[in-house]
């Protein structure tokens, strides 16, 4: 069983992770998401039941909560020096700002923990999105950033979808930008004119799906680009080696275009088995150390392609288990259609 053995590592990581992860100090909530997401998809959340309420508080402590609701969202870590407050707060200086990818990770993690998002300052989050869109429709992750690209367009779409309020973005401009990011080979690039890439293709397709606009693109040509990324495992770019994380990025994209039946899962499974480490967890390729991102993305891929039984289904466009998606539909006080 590929996914089962993995839980030893993830439970350890929830307790503490090694110093090699300090480059993720400003994005710790993504680590939280990758760790909890694995337990969710493998139906092992009961293992952490005892910590659930505490962890929900800890995530809310990342909320950027102002009095006037002009901005909102979550930071990726508690590094800015503000006081811990289990509802969130803010420190009035330019070095303490929310980050759109962290808001996405926080909302998903809260849903996985069964929270109803009742303490999320919805108005602040939506107003925060309005500060981040550029003239050409793309998004940057936080107010003082210059990194406009498709990754943050996806975050903006996912956040708006979860909160069931798209008033924080100019949807037409978003669509225009996404379509322009499609490269000449029909993969999507992270930004205009760049090289097609599995991660950006996921961001483009998931955004379009969340906006119910997949028909805007040539789906047949896009699907072929995606299918052609399979060697045994999936490559993220043309002529680059396969990498386990693309089991999710490419796999989820293929699934959104209803093409999973075309994928040969036998060599895929063999590749993933080779990337499984003796500690549990998956590395990016053979003989690599395991890490939370690649472990999560592999398990998500196992679910997408039905390679392993007993995993929960994945809602590909949000990157959330069916079970946690039910929490979103049933517990949050805004109803999703």
């Amino acid at each position: 069983m590929l996914a089962e053995v993995d839980q030893k590592l993830v439970l350890a990581c929830l307790k503490m992770i090694p110093q090699q992860y300090i480059s993720a100090d400003t994005s710790r909530l993504t680590l939280t998401l990758f760790a909890l997401g694995q337990l969710d998809l493998t139906k092992n959340l009961k293992e952490i039941e005892i910590s659930r309420a505490n962890w929900i508080d800890w995530i809310y402590a990342h909320q950027y909560l102002t009095e006037n609701n002009q901005n909102g969202g979550f930071r990726g870590g508690l590094f800015s020096g503000h006081k811990f407050d289990k509802n969130g707060n803010y420190k009035k200086d330019e070095y303490d700002l929310p980050h759109i990818a962290m808001t996405y990770a926080a909302l998903l993690s809260l849903l996985i923990l069964g929270d109803d998002l009742g303490r999320v300052n919805k108005t602040g989050v939506i107003n925060g999105l309005k500060l981040l869109q550029s003239e050409n429709g793309s998004f940057k992750p936080c107010e003082d950033s210059r990194e406009f690209d498709l990754r943050f367009v996806f975050c903006a779409c996912a956040i708006s979808y979860i909160l069931n309020d798209f008033s924080g973005l100019n949807v037409n401009k978003v669509l225009e930008f996404i379509v322009k990011c499609q490269a000449y080979d029909y993969g999507f690039a992270q930004n205009l004119n760049l090289e097609s890439h599995g991660g950006s293709t996921y961001c483009a397709l998931a955004s379009l799906k969340l906006l119910n606009k997949l028909d805007l693109i040539d789906k047949k040509a896009t699907l072929l680009w995606l299918l052609k990324r399979q060697e045994d495992g999936f490559r993220g770019r043309i002529n680059k080696p396969p990498d386990t994380c693309y089991t999710f990025w490419i796999g989820a994209s293929i699934s959104m275009l209803e093409g999973t039946k075309f994928v040969d899962t036998v060599p895929l499974k063999t590749f993933l088995e080779c990337c499984k480490t003796k500690y549990g967890g998956f590395g990016k390729s053979e003989n690599c150390h395991p890490d939370l991102l690649h472990s999560y993305m592999t398990i998500a891929g196992l679910s997408i392609f039905g390679i392993e039984e007993g995993l929960d289904d994945l809602n590909c466009e949000l990157n959330l288990s069916k079970n946690s998606f039910e929490t979103l539909k049933n517990s949050c006080n805004w109803n999703l259609s």
């Binding site: 307790k15 503490m16 992770i17 992860y21 710790r28 800890w58």
Partner: peptide, 28 residues
């Protein structure tokens, strides 16, 4: 499980000397 996995001096020091934190996946 954790100790078996990361036989890393810094991490061990952290585990032994400090109380457990509320945080999810704290970095050593």
């Amino acid at each position: 499980n954790f100790v078996l996995f990361y036989l890393n001096v810094n991490v061990l020091k952290n585990l032994i000397s400090k109380k457990k934190k509320l945080a999810v996946a704290p970095i050593a």
